[in-house]
Design a protein around this nucleic acid. Structure first.
Length: 911
RNA sequence: GGGCUCUUAGCUCAGUUGGUUAGAGCGCUACCUUGACAUGGUAGAGGUCAUAGGUUCGAGUCCUAUAGAGCCCACCA
């Protein structure tokens, strides 16, 4: 134990304790039979990412749960790792290549991937290093990466299994195609730009009648790929057309009129041409109605395929011009309106994106969604807040197949090969070969010419396995059996579909095969779901409510915040600010809350430690052994009652995922109960005239309470609590607060009688302070108190605890006032069960005193009025519960008696 | 268009199943460097709980409508 600094300086302590914890193995967990596991898997951050305030919130929450459960004695595993982030990472490396005037094609696939791995080794661990600064107690020995050997094996395994089950298939899918770069890009990479274009109204003839219909389109050139015309099923105007056949202008093909509710009757003419090969909406309409897909563009956006000869090889925009002209001369262009709409551009080269059909791999989602929906509806997986259940249900009931192939190089290569033997007579040679290990030859014709699919898998195709692939799946092993299912998932709500839903599907699909820890089969949903509770975190915004973003520059660097305020301060503040399921407006200055709190706790510890030394308590006396119930008084009984009820409330808050409630409980209890009242009352005893030996016992009792406080605090503020825990007592080498038992509330200490006695003392002290304040009695001025109690027990309490009045209100003397004698030059106080006077000869301003009394009287009159009205209402008296009515009566009585006393005080002053 | 959330003090927010005088932090005012802490202490000012109805003995809390703010999904061919 050494002298503590006047203010808490976090930097050094954080560094010291983090490496202490890690080097002593406190983060690592192995299966321990008979002990209950508690597991969290981290949402793996992208290797391209840097720490954001969102990560701070997310990981602080996880660390609170993990540390709390660890202290409760669970075998606790927090599994960390990172995500390879296909597109993002490939982009970063391509950008750096661009600075060398190179493209990935210049390097070739193998060399490019070598560069990406190189980049990953160098920069991919950044966010993990940053996370440590926050104090996260992840099991770093188990750190995983989605492209690890083991996780890649899991990816291949599930692909093959789902294919065997018929849940993976290859089909045409519409992607965002860049006709200049010749690549598909993801939705995120499409840059929508407002465009002034036109809406063309084109006339289609109806077969077998003289009629024709008019259809509006922004892209008349795609007419050549039309396969249907759609109307809304409820649209009276066009209902009779459904089932009719119309003729595509210029192409002169016959197509049906169908009904689909995606059509907006209010737009255009309420009729839409359907071109599944060249429009995403039309694509889905086509899927629903089993329509053909007519592709009319080549990879560069030139017309091709089944289009009239004259348009072949013409660029899409030139073709549009020609077709508009041809429609006009054919008399089939009804009119052309101006029309502004958003058009997708390539984020890289700004070329207009072409929705384009290509070969892609899919997962059939319906069979997977069914059990996953059930698990959430039946509460096997619980969402917090639960309003997300509705969103989840809606998505699961309307689920589409998942396109899992990506035209990228960085990622898990699809485990599919193709036979290159074009001359083979065996038709199976034209089928894809799906295999766990690369085939050396075609299994059908034995040709050595087999080539792997060029594409890689969607990044989510590895992350949906995260809760079990990180534990070694597909290999059965002790750790997987023991730690699965995990307990709590903490994640942002915007990836509920991408990630959360799919993890539930994947877990329920494959984990039935892995035995439970005791070797028995997993038979229930509860045993196969990947987690039981999902905590959806808040979104962090700036003080104007805007999302944090790089371009706005409103996104603080958490490392700067940690350097300035400390990791504990940041953790505490962000948890305090973030209620379950609501957005948080954040600015760095708010961390003063946490910093000040850490400092307050620090100084409370410093106070206790200083007194420990002053009282000469030997360093060999442990706090625990020093515990004694001798000479216990109100302050002790009260703080123990508050300690135990706070720890009960804290545990239930955490169990209900109300972390911000938990931080408020800690804050109020430590600051207002422990520091403001208990320590001040403690001073009265420590500096009073009791023998040294008793003072030692009193202080050790205070230290025992404080030590429990540090335990309660540790999950939220691990550093300062650990630092103080060692500060107040010499600990054996290698021992940490991390595995000290989390306090279990003891009923015997929770005592309403003590709390109400204390409340009375507090209200009496407050009354004195209040009078002093309002009458501007200087804080240094000592006063005496003349009391008169009709309720003798109350008077007895006051006189028993006069030492507290001395310390907390500078009352040097309390004496009994004979009844009827009321000093004129005095402030009058109304106290429960009696009244009191502060003689202020020569100091009191009688005008101010009268004002004070009149103000209080006015307030009481208003309240008495409303209570009298309430009690005068027979409905209230008859229908309200008896205890409520009784309470109102008591209140009225006590107010009336206060009014009487105050009136007496007015007379006193006047007389 | 479909779904969801929010509106309480100058600001940011608590307020559990309806029932004491609606609370906190910051900011503000006054006083205080008293032997843990000025990153502190004591006292104080400040609210028709968005609006209008309704249910109820009783509504910040439940219901309906309106206004405003936000989020997610789908999206104008």
């Amino acid at each position: 134990m050494s002298e503590l600094a006047k203010t808490y300086t976090p930097g050094d302590a954080e560094e010291r304790w983090y490496s202490f914890w890690e080097s002593n193995g406190y983060f690592h967990a192995e299966p321990v039979p008979g002990r209950t596991p508690y597991t969290i898997v981290i949402p793996p951050p992208n290797i391209t990412g840097i720490l954001t305030m969102g990560h701070v919130l997310n990981n602080s929450i996880q660390d609170v749960f993990i540390r709390w459960r660890r202290m409760q004695g669970y075998q606790t595993l927090w599994m960390p790792g990172t995500d390879h982030a296909g597109i993002a990472t490939q982009n970063v490396v391509e950008k750096s290549l661009a600075r060398e005037k190179l493209t990935r094609h210049d390097l070739g696939r193998e060399e490019f991937l070598r560069r990406v791995w190189e980049w990953k080794e160098q920069y991919g661990g950044t966010i993990i290093r940053q996370l440590r600064k926050l104090g996260t107690s992840c099991d770093w020995q188990r750190e995983r990466f989605t492209m690890d050997e083991g996780l890649s094996k899991a990816v291949q395994e599930i692909f093959v299994r789902l294919h065997e089950r018929g849940l993976i298939y290859r089909g045409k899918y519409i992607v965002n195609w860049c006709p200049k770069d010749h690549t598909a890009i993801s939705d995120d990479e499409v840059n929508p730009v407002e465009h002034k274009g036109h809406l063309y109204y084109v006339r289609y003839r109806v077969r077998g009648s003289g009629e024709s219909i008019v259809i509006a389109t922004t892209r008349p050139e795609t007419i050549l790929g039309d396969v249907a015309v759609a109307v809304h099923p409820d649209d009276e105007r066009h209902r009779r057309l459904v089932g009719a056949t119309v003729i595509v202008p210029l192409a002169e093909r016959e197509i049906p009129v169908i009904a689909d509710s995606f059509v907006d009757p209010a737009f255009g003419t309420g009729m839409v041409k359907i071109t599944p090969a060249h429009d995403p909406n039309d694509y889905w309409v086509g899927q629903r109605h089993n329509l053909a897909q007519i592709n009319i563009f080549d990879v560069s956006g030139r017309l091709t395929g089944p289009v009239p000869e004259k348009y072949r090889g013409i660029d899409r925009f030139e073709a549009r011009r020609m077709i508009v002209q041809d429609l006009e001369s054919a008399g089939q262009m009804e009119k052309i309106d101006d029309h502004t709409h958003a058009i997708g551009h390539c984020y890289r080269c700004d070329t207009i994106i072409e929705p384009y059909l290509s070969d892609q791999w899919f997962v059939r989602m319906k069979p997977l969604a069914e059990p996953a929906l059930r698990a959430v509806q039946q509460g096997t997986v619980r969402f917090h807040p639960d309003r997300w259940v509705k969103t989840y249900e809606h998505w699961m009931l309307n689920i589409r197949d998942w396109c899992i192939s990506r035209q990228l190089w960085w990622g898990h290569r699809i485990p599919v090969w193709y036979c290159g033997n074009k001359n083979s007579a065996d038709p199976r040679c034209r089928e894809p070969i799906v295999a766990r290990t690369p085939p050396s030859a075609c299994p059908h014709c034995s040709s050595a010419d087999v080539r792997q699919d060029e594409d890689v898998l969607d990044t989510w195709f590895s992350s949906w396995l995260w809760p079990f692939s990180t534990l070694g799946w597909p290999d059965d092993n002790r750790g997987l059996r023991y730690f699965y299912p995990t307990n709590t998932l903490v994640t942002a709500p915007d990836i509920i579909f991408f990630w959360v839903a799919r993890m539930i599907m994947a877990g329920m699909e494959v984990m039935r095969d892995i035995p439970a820890p005791d070797g028995s089969p997993r038979t229930t949903d509860a045993a196969i779901v990947p987690f039981r509770d999902v905590y959806f975190t808040s979104i962090i915004r700036d003080m104007k409510g805007r999302k944090m973003s790089k371009s706005l520059g409103n996104s603080p660097d958490p490392l700067d915040v940690i350097a300035e305020y400390g990791a504990d301060a940041l953790r505490f503040t962000i948890l305090y600010l973030a209620p379950l399921g609501q957005d948080v407006l954040y600015s760095n200055e708010k961390c003063e809350l946490g910093r000040n709190f850490a400092n307050k706790i620090w100084n409370a510890g410093r106070f206790l430690l200083m007194n420990r030394e002053q009282l000469g308590i030997p360093g060999t006396t442990t706090i625990h052994a020093g515990w004694s119930e001798d000479h216990i008084d109100l302050a002790d009984r009260w703080i123990l009652s508050r300690l135990h009820s706070t720890s009960a409330a804290l545990s239930s808050s955490l169990e209900e995922f109300e972390i911000n409630q938990a931080t408020k409980l800690l804050y109020d209890f430590i600051w207002h109960d422990f520091c403001d009242w208990y320590i001040e009352m403690l001073k009265a005893r420590l500096y009073g005239d009791e023998p040294q030996e008793i003072k030692q016992r009193v202080l050790l009792r205070a230290l025992n309470v404080f030590e429990k406080i540090l335990r309660l605090l540790h999950p939220v503020m691990p550093f300062v609590s650990e630092e103080l825990w060692h500060g107040i007592e010499e600990r054996p080498a290698g021992i940490s607060l991390m595995t000290a038992a989390f306090p279990v509330p003891e009923e015997r200490w929770i005592d309403p009688g003590t709390e109400s006695e204390m409340a009375f003392v507090q209200s009496a002290i407050n009354a004195v302070r209040n009078a002093r304040g309002e009458l501007s009695v200087p804080p240094s001025r000592e006063i005496s108190l003349l009391v008169h109690f009709t309720d003798g027990s109350k008077g007895e309490i006051i006189s028993r605890y006069r030492n507290y009045f001395l310390r907390l209100a500078k009352v040097t003397d309390i004496s009994e006032l004979g009844s009827g004698k009321r000093p004129k030059h005095a402030a009058g106080l109304v106290i429960e069960g009696g009244e009191a006077f502060i003689p202020l000869e020569g100091l009191i301003d009688l005008g101010a005193e009268r004002e004070r009394i009149e103000k209080e009287l006015a307030r009481l009159h208003v309240m008495v009025g409303s209570i009298e009205q309430k009690l005068g209402n027979p409905n209230f008296v008859d229908r309200a519960p008896r205890e409520i009515v009784e309470k109102e009566r008591e209140k009225l009585q006590s107010m009336r008696s206060s009014i009487e006393k105050l009136k007496g005080n007015l007379e006193r002053i006047a007389g």
